Simulated scan of single mutants.
Amino acid sequence: MTTICGLPESAVTEYMKPVRQQDSNSSEIATSFSRAVWGTLTEAGDRVAGLLVSAVGAHDSIDLLIHRRTAHEIARIVQSRIEIQQEFPELVEDIAEGLQRWIPRLSSRDALNTVVHAGHLGAFLLTPEDEDWPRGLDDLAAHAPLGLWARGKRDVVSKFSRSLGVVGARASTGYGEHVTMETVSTIAQQDIAIVSGAAYGIDGMAHRSALAVGGTTMAFLAGGVDRFYPSGHDALLGRIMESGLVLAESPCGYSPTKWRFLLRNRLIAASTQATVVMEAGWRSGSLNTANHAATLNRPLGVVPGPVTSASSAGCHRLLREYDAICVTTAAEMCELLPEHTPLADQLDDVE
């Protein structure tokens, strides 16, 4: 009997079809299901898992775990497949620590259950093998997501190629929300997708502003796509799904945690062509997203605020300490994007 990750191929194929509509052969099914299995074994951004999958492939790397290959054996295989700067003993140690994390969670049947649940929700699985995979995520290298779960319009995935990350403080002020509403509503009308994190404050205003003008918006969640968070944005996330996408690196059933929020931020920065911080306090989580954007050499725009406002202290910090660009209009924000189309003068000003 042919198996995929230790399960009958027929069973895996039956339940993967609803979440992998593009797959048409057993090899594609095996690869995508193996990535779903990896999603249940690792926390987001697991460097060692990313390294192993890039060297061996998603399906073959799961087989190595199922057959209980040693850390030394796996390290030898990795070393023979890709160039790696890491010394061999250190690589063996990292893989050994990885095995301690992964093996206790290894259950292809549990992974299949998450797939079944996702299928019932109408969710689908995106993988790096897909033509419309957001290629910017590949810049995260070994820290790139092994797959993404999504709910909404599949054809919207291609719009990551022309997208802007918009983030800011949860405890936003009227000033920050006004600037966000005026600029995002203009930008979204230029067929530029708005990507954010669905949090209260600036994130929520960015999504709502894009929706108000019939634009495209996408939200990355810190938990599974079945765990809308914050709960007060259930209706907003439902609206986003109707014309855009809600995405998550974690499988269905996974709850949002502080650590997952921080890891989620790298996806907003990497998947988009540029990031704008609308308003942020000195310790705002938006600075974490900005840091990822800067590390990835993505253009980083920052909206200044009153020097007396603690809610803009983080923005001013970015202007001082990072290679950030001061932006005050929709036109200036669009200039951050490669091959941008200048906006008409009358659309430039924030009123």
Rank of each mutant, 00 (worst) to 15 (best):
Thr217Lys: 13
Glu339His: 15
Arg154Asn: 04
Arg320Gln: 13
Gly45Thr: 06
Pro89Cys: 10
Phe228Gly: 03
Val116Asn: 03
Arg266Ala: 09
Lys153Cys: 15
Ala310Ser: 14
Gly176Ser: 08
Ala290Asp: 12
Thr295Pro: 00
Ala55Leu: 13
Val157Lys: 01
Thr275Ser: 08
Leu267Asn: 03
Glu87His: 12
Ser286Ala: 15
Lys17Ser: 10
Gly197Trp: 01
Ala212Phe: 04
Ala313Val: 02
Thr329Ala: 02
Glu332Ala: 08
Ser107Asp: 12
Ser286Gln: 05
Glu351Ile: 11
Pro230Lys: 09
Glu182Asp: 13
Phe228Asn: 02
Val156Ile: 15
Ala111Ser: 14
Ser311Pro: 00
Gly224Cys: 01
Asn288Ser: 12
Thr13Lys: 13
Arg162Thr: 09
Leu296Met: 02
Gly223Glu: 04
Leu237Ile: 12
Ala331Cys: 00
Arg101Pro: 07
Trp282Arg: 14
Thr329Met: 09
Ile74Ala: 07
Ile268Asp: 01
Trp282His: 12
Asp345Met: 08
Pro145Met: 01
Val225Asn: 05
Leu263Ser: 09
Asp60Glu: 14
Arg154Gly: 02
Leu125Pro: 08
Met333Ile: 09
Ala199Trp: 04
His316Lys: 02
Gly147Pro: 00
Asp349Phe: 15
Trp102Asn: 07
Val277Phe: 10
Gly285Thr: 10
Ala49Gln: 06
Leu267Asp: 07
Arg317Gln: 14
Pro145His: 07
Arg170Ser: 09
Ser108Gln: 04
Gln79Asp: 15
Thr2Arg: 14
Ala118Cys: 08
Asp203Phe: 11
Asp349His: 14
Asp139Tyr: 08
Met218Ala: 14
Asn291Val: 00
Arg264His: 06
Thr31Pro: 00
Ala144Val: 07
Leu247Trp: 02
Gln79Leu: 13
Asn25Gln: 08
Ala44Cys: 10
Val166Ala: 06
Gly6Val: 10
Ile202Phe: 11
Thr295Leu: 10
Thr275Ile: 14
Asp94Arg: 15
Arg266Ile: 07
Pro338Cys: 12
Leu125Asn: 04
Leu336Asp: 02
Met16Cys: 15
Arg208Met: 08
Asp94Gly: 00
Ile82Gly: 12
Ala210Asp: 04
Ala198Trp: 04
Val157Asp: 07
Thr272Lys: 07
Ala313Asn: 01
Ser284Tyr: 07
Asn25Glu: 13
Val277Pro: 05
Arg35Phe: 05
Leu318Ala: 12
Ser108Leu: 02
Ile29Leu: 05
Pro18Cys: 09
Ser255Glu: 15
Thr183Phe: 06
Ala294Phe: 04
Ala111Asp: 08
Glu9Gly: 06
Gly122Cys: 09
Ala324Phe: 08
Ala331Val: 00
Gly57Glu: 09
Asn291Phe: 06
Glu43Met: 06
Arg105Ile: 05
Thr217Arg: 09
Leu336His: 08
Leu337Gln: 00
Glu43Asn: 12
Met278Arg: 04
Thr217Tyr: 07
Leu41Lys: 05
Ala193Phe: 05
Ala248Glu: 03
Gly201Pro: 06
Thr13Pro: 00
Gly45His: 02
Val167Asn: 03
